[in-house]
């Protein structure tokens, strides 16, 4: 019995997962019951996380699973508790939004045709990637290149990202926190 080509398996898995993502996205847009939508959003995040694992981006997959499927679901449920579980049916005309969405999608597909092939060595990112892979261990002693790049080579960026999380938290607290004098 001949072995299955791993390239074929990866392509098949990616296609199947992307199809699932598409089905979930359409379901999320169509369904009016927001509780079901929140559950579907969690499922969407888990499928995306699996897709990231197939693409060998384990760190991103972990973030997507914990933030997208975990915390976001809880926060959405909290928001549902404060508002309503049924989406209001809009009366606005659908032609103009559909037109905008179609044009944006067409532009994106057109732009995608100009990207280098997936995994090809001609990608700009691969111009420096090999250099980082080679020098991470002697420079930092950290085997995980993602951690080394995030925390050391791009430490300044990550400081900015931490500041963004800080700013977001402060913003939410200022908006949502009940002041001591306010009546509930």
């Amino acid at each position: 019995m001949s072995t299955i080509d791993p390239v074929f398996v990866e392509a098949f898995l990616s296609l199947a997962l992307m199809l699932l993502v598409m089905v979930l996205a359409v379901a999320i847009v169509r369904i009016r019951g927001l509780f079901a939508v929140v559950v579907l959003l969690g499922a969407y995040s888990f499928v995306m996380a699996t897709l990231f694992v197939v693409l060998d981006a384990v760190d991103v997959a972990m973030t997507e699973a914990s933030v997208g499927a975990g915390i976001s679901t809880v926060l959405f449920l909290g928001a549902l508790y404060l508002t309503d579980v049924k989406e209001a049916t809009g009366t606005a005309r659908r032609i103009a939004p559909l037109f905008v969405a179609a044009v944006t999608a067409a532009v994106l597909v057109w732009g995608m045709s100009d990207l280098p092939d997936f995994g090809s060595s001609a990608q700009p990112i691969h111009a420096v990637g090999a250099d980082y892979l080679g020098r991470t261990l002697p420079d930092t002693g950290i085997p995980n290149v993602v951690t080394a790049v995030l925390a050391s080579y791009r430490g300044f960026d990550t400081l900015g990202e931490t500041a963004v999380v800080f700013t977001a938290a402060i913003g939410v607290l200022v908006l949502l926190r009940r002041r001591s004098g306010e009546r509930s």
Binding site: G78, V165, L176, R177
Partner: peptide, 12 residues
């Protein structure tokens, strides 16, 4: 931050 955001939602 995550806990603070959850507390802010849940305490309303």
């Amino acid at each position: 931050s995550m806990i603070a955001i959850y507390y802010a939602f849940a305490s309303r």
